[in-house]
Structure formats: C-alpha cells, structure tokens
Design a protein around this nucleic acid. Structure first.
Lengths: 251, 251
DNA sequence: TTAGCTTTGTGTCAATTTTACACTATCCAA
DNA sequence: TTGGATAGTGTAAAATTGACACAAAGCTAA
C-alpha cells in the first residue's frame, strides 16, 4: 500500500528516496525489518528489501525518514540517524529490481539517490503480524542476510558499521531493549552489535561503573534458572554524565 | 568559471549537488577552502561558501566529489569521506543565495539535496594565488568563520565533527601535513581538530608508542629556537597495525 | 524430593594505560 | 653573550583493563 504511490506522484521528488534500516533485537541477536517484495521479484532475484520511499518535495530528509518509519511501523519519536547518501547511477541493475519498480513507480527509469537512515526500536513495539504492513514485512537476523534488493545489502552494512561506532560513544543500545531489561540481555546486545565476545564480569563492571542504570527491586519470573535482576536506563544520570564531556564507553 | 554551468545543463541532475569541505592546516590552526561569491551576494549576506556543484546524471556521488575537488584544486587521489546528505527544502532561504543562484543555474528554483564530503589536503598542495580558481578562493581558519551561504555553516561543522570522530580511530591527520613534519606540528594539529589541549609529553609518548612514524635523521633549519626533528608517516607500519584489529588511538 | 540443568552474579591480581607535572638543551637574533 | 623561543625528556600515583572460576537460585523431570 505504501508503495503504490503513482496517485500522488506530482508531489514526489522522483530523484531522491529515503531507506530505513530498522534494527531490532530479539534478545539473542540483532535483527532488521525487511519487506518482502513477493513473487514479482523472486523469479529474478532477492525478494527482500529495506523499507523506503521517495521523498516529498516539500519535506526535509529527516522528516521524510520519520514519515516513512511511521507509515511502516506506526512508531514515532524514535532515535533516527543518517547513514549517508547512496547514489551509484548503476545501483538498480538487477532484473528483479527493475521489474518491481515498474510496478510501483511513475518514472521507473529515473536515477534515484537514496538517503539511508537507521533506527533502533524494541521489537515488541512493532509486531509485523499485527499491522497492516504485516503480510510483507518481517524481522530478519542480520547475520542471516546474504543478499538484498538494489544496493540495500551495502546500505545495511554501512548502517551496522555506523551503529558499531556510535554505540562506543553513546548508550543508544537501550533503544533496542524493553524498558526493563537484564544485564545479560544488555551484554548480548553489545556482543551482537560489536561482533565480538565481551568478558561477562568486565562488561558488568564497566556498565555499572557508568552509573546510568537504575537497579529495580524486581527479578525475572518463570525462567528455568536463577532469575536475573531487572534494570532501567536512567536518562537523568546519563545527562549528567555527558555534561562532563564524557563520550567514550571504552568498548 | 566552474559555476557557470548553464551550457551543459542537459547532463546535470538539477536536484543533487555535492559540496566539498576541504580542510587544510596552516601549522597553527585548521582551515577550510572557501569561495568568495563576490559582490552579487555581499550586499545581501555572506560572501563565502563551500565549493560545490551539481552532479552529472551518469556519475556516482564519490566520483562527483572527486571531480569537483579536482576541478577546483587540481588535486587527485585524495582521501575523501562523505559527511552526509543535507536536504532541507528551505535551505536556500537567504536573499543573497537566491540572487547568486539565478546567476549561475538554469533552474534556480529547483529543490537541491546536497551531499557533503570532506577531505584533508596539505595547504602547500593548493595555493589559491597560483591557480585559475585563485581570485575567488581562499583558505580561512575554521574558528574565524561565523556564517556561510546556504546551510554551509552547518555542513562545515558536521564535517568537522566527523573529522573529530575519525581522527580518534584512524591517523588521517597526516594528510594535512607536509611529508616531513615535526611532532609539535602534529601535536598542534590534533589540538586543533579535537578542540582541546593535549599534554605535550603524553601526546608524544602515545604517538611514538604507536610506532607509525619514521624518524628522519634531519632537523628543521633556520628556526630561531632549538630545531625539531623531522618525521615521516610510515604507511607500512600502519598497515601492520590495522591488521591486528587496531582501531582506537585513544584520544 | 532430589538430581541435574541452566543462567546469574561476584572478586582479585597483574599488566597496562593514563594523568599530572618542570626543567634543561639548542638555536637565532639582538 | 644574553634573552627569547621551542624542543625534548621521566617518573610516580591513579585508573583501567584483562584474565580467570565457582557458588547461588530457579526450574524440570525423574
């Protein structure tokens, strides 16, 4: 539905799109929200693509990214960061991609520069099966993705690299977790994003020393092992911390 | 000259430009190459702007940035990094900017998304007075810049922020220095980019421990003080270093 | 009820890194 | 030859990092 845009084409800028890399975390691994373009493309190549859209001529890029995110998932006021612009004139070279574009765009031959954004959302806040978008969107573990439409594979990994850098500098990972989370979940999250094992005790020590977590007097329930304490991210404490010029989490 | 593009307009993409933040270092402070748009704009507002151009429809963004850099300075094979896309539809709001665009563009009203790149060049490799571009380009210390055309002030500082982050991770600062340089020059360079003082002895120790400098058996001559030893950046040693997964200079 | 499985949660020590800090050496110019 | 300027150097205390192992708590299934 979001992709059948011919009707309002006159307001669209046919040369510029935004694509969204929407990261989630299933408490095991990093995942990303992809759309399935269905059988039109599957005969020719990858079915899966990043959600994205042409921009309107009167909106700025950040607004466009926010709009697209909201249209796709209903999520608003979400951390969004630009990955960069991708503009190889040859980026639409796969047969499947051309076929698909014909089906949804007024000017499928126009050269499109796309501006990619990434964002982190708690997976529980967007459940594909429950939304209108459901039939053709799904969370996919990043590590399992081998190819995507257009240059989306490249974009995905550029976004992941940005995320990797960013999480060393700002505590943005909390955006992927539920409000209450355990240190082990946070630990696995960091390992997924940084793609390397982190010593459990050292990780805990480091995080706790930052003093940006509120320890809740509450534990997991119903787990078949020792239940873990729950924590909340403490925004106030983090504000204090940044005001001292702190910008290095040391990972 | 570079900006009178009406003739070849049919090959240009009227919606997308690249702007270049060309950083230099005058051995005292960080500088940037700006063009002076002359009196057309000065009556209305800022004369100074980042060099930039519309892209051709058949070139990718990185190529466009390289081309523009070469057209403006003659420099080739230079480290270039994307800052990001800037696309506020309202970004051309100053009267001076509108007037100027009318004088150089076929479609001055079109909305333009610009993709910014930054690059580091030794100032000695581009001397405005000697080039055709000379009359209207100049190196300006970043700290003295208070306003620029369009959203270029914002772009400049986004570029500087990227540079700040990047130099903590990769030794790109050497691109700003002459082949042979002193540790004090390198020291001042880091202080300029990071915008903070670094202890002299600690800085030297840290740099030397990295073992990516070749100490030349040569000293400064003709300076009215103790002459400094000269060093060269050692690319091979740096390669070795990165292959161990090193990605943090610890500044 | 108990044994076994699973994950949580904790401390120390050695090595490394960081920070703070002050004086002598060398060259030029006056 | 003196004064001015910058180069160049070491140490000690504090903080951080990295490596490493075992008991505690809950559930399940026998």
């Amino acid at each position: 539905m979001q992709y059948n845009l011919k009707k309002i084409n006159s307001e669209l800028n046919p040369n510029v799109s935004v694509d969204c890399v929407i990261f989630g975390f299933d408490l095991e691994q990093l995942t990303v929200l992809l759309i399935d373009r269905g059988e039109i493309s599957s005969a020719f190549g990858p079915r899966l693509a990043l959600p994205g859209n042409l921009i309107y001529d009167n909106e700025n890029l950040d607004m466009a990214a926010n709009r697209v995110l909201a249209e796709l998932t209903g999520l608003k006021n979400i951390y969004l960061e630009q990955v960069g612009a991708f503009g190889d004139p040859d980026r639409i070279h796969k047969e499947a991609d051309r076929e698909w574009l014909k089906s949804i765009r007024a000017e499928p031959e126009a050269r499109v520069i796309t501006v990619a954004y990434y964002t982190l959302v708690p997976m529980s806040d967007y459940i594909p099966q429950a939304a209108s978008f459901a039939k053709n969107a799904d969370w996919v573990p990043v590590n399992l993705i081998k190819e995507l439409a257009f240059d989306h594979y490249e974009i995905l990994h550029a976004a992941k690299d940005k995320l990797k850098q960013k999480i060393k500098i700002q505590p943005i990972g909390f955006n992927l977790l539920p409000e209450k989370f355990t240190l082990s979940q946070l630990h696995r999250l960091y390992e997924s994003i940084l793609d390397k094992p982190l010593d459990k005790r050292n990780f805990r020590r480091k995080i706790q020393k930052l003093d940006i977590l509120t320890s809740l007097r509450e534990k997991q329930r119903g787990v078949p092992h020792k239940p873990s304490s729950l924590y909340e991210f403490n925004h106030e404490k983090y504000q204090e911390l940044t005001q001292t010029g702190f910008d290095n989490f040391g990972f």
